[in-house]
């Protein structure tokens, strides 16, 4: 009886398999942050974002660009550095329950990655289309680009690399080597950022008619396809999780 009480106490003290607080907090973090960003560009896009030679453009947009780039480099280094520094050096010896718990944490990272991809590749990218159809650009650093290319893309890159780093440093499943599709899923969308260079080079022929389906944009398309590689990650995860749960589900 005493032992049973002790084990119940141990169970109660044990961390839950899925930390729902982290999951909801992460989801809400991006939602609230991007809602604020959307409000900011709605107000200051029109009032300070039309003429890149105006002093208010420097105040509201270029300063934002400088600040976000510094913060992103710091965040990338801090998150990935922390995950690497605190890596599990005996990852192959963890218990099945701990492994399952880590899969849940890994999936919290993947949920964040999917959520970040939505904001970057869907919400802010198509939004850029309507901005350029409305406003004649006079700089590479238009308000929509400062949000899309230099904020939402780096955020999903940071989230994706952190997710990959978590899997590689804490899950036995990924100790076999480098998971090819995981690399594609993270590196492909990452390559959209360098492709911005090609895009801006092309648009330097100011004024160029703003056709969204112009071949100049096909680099984004090619790298966008890489998001499908998340299917390979899902397949690997399903096999691992099935192995962990199989006998208990039978």
């Amino acid at each position: 009886m005493a032992a049973t009480t002790e084990s119940v106490k141990a169970d109660a003290a044990e961390a839950p398999l899925l930390n729902k607080t982290n999951l909801i907090a992460g989801f809400m973090l991006y939602l609230v942050f991007y809602s604020f960003i959307r409000w900011y560009e709605g107000v200051y896009g029109w009032s300070a974002g039309l003429d890149s030679f105006a002093p208010e453009f420097e105040t509201y947009w270029m300063n934002m660009l400088y600040i976000e780039m510094v913060i992103e480099v710091l965040l990338f280094s801090a998150i990935n550095g922390y995950l690497w520094k605190t890596r599990d050096r005996k990852v192959m010896s963890i218990t099945p329950r701990e492994e399952l718990r880590r899969h849940f944490t890994h999936w919290t990272w993947l949920v964040m990655y999917g959520w970040a991809i939505y904001w970057g590749a869907s919400y802010f990218t198509e939004q850029d289309g309507t901005w350029h159809q409305t406003i004649v650009r006079d700089t590479d650093f238009t308000p929509s680009h400062i949000i899309e290319f230099y904020l939402s893309y780096p955020i999903y890159i940071i989230t994706g690399t952190a997710s990959f780093m978590y899997a590689k440093t804490r899950l036995p499943t990924y100790q076999e080597g480098l998971h090819l599709m995981y690399l594609v899923a993270v590196v492909g969308p990452f390559m959209i950022l360098p492709n911005v260079g090609l895009n801006e080079w092309g648009h330097t022929f100011w004024f160029m008619e703003e056709l969204f389906v112009a071949p100049l944009h096909y680099g984004f398309v090619f790298f966008g396809w890489a998001a499908l590689a998340v299917l390979g990650v899902v397949n690997t995860e399903v096999m691992s999780i099935t192995k962990l749960l199989k006998k208990d589900l039978a």
Binding site: S122, I192, G224, V230
Partner: peptide, 20 residues
Amino acid sequence: VVFTAILGGYHIHYMLTGGD
């Protein structure tokens, strides 16, 4: 994750090949 990843990849593909 499948829904949002497909959403992002499919949307950027579609808007830049048939978007206008």
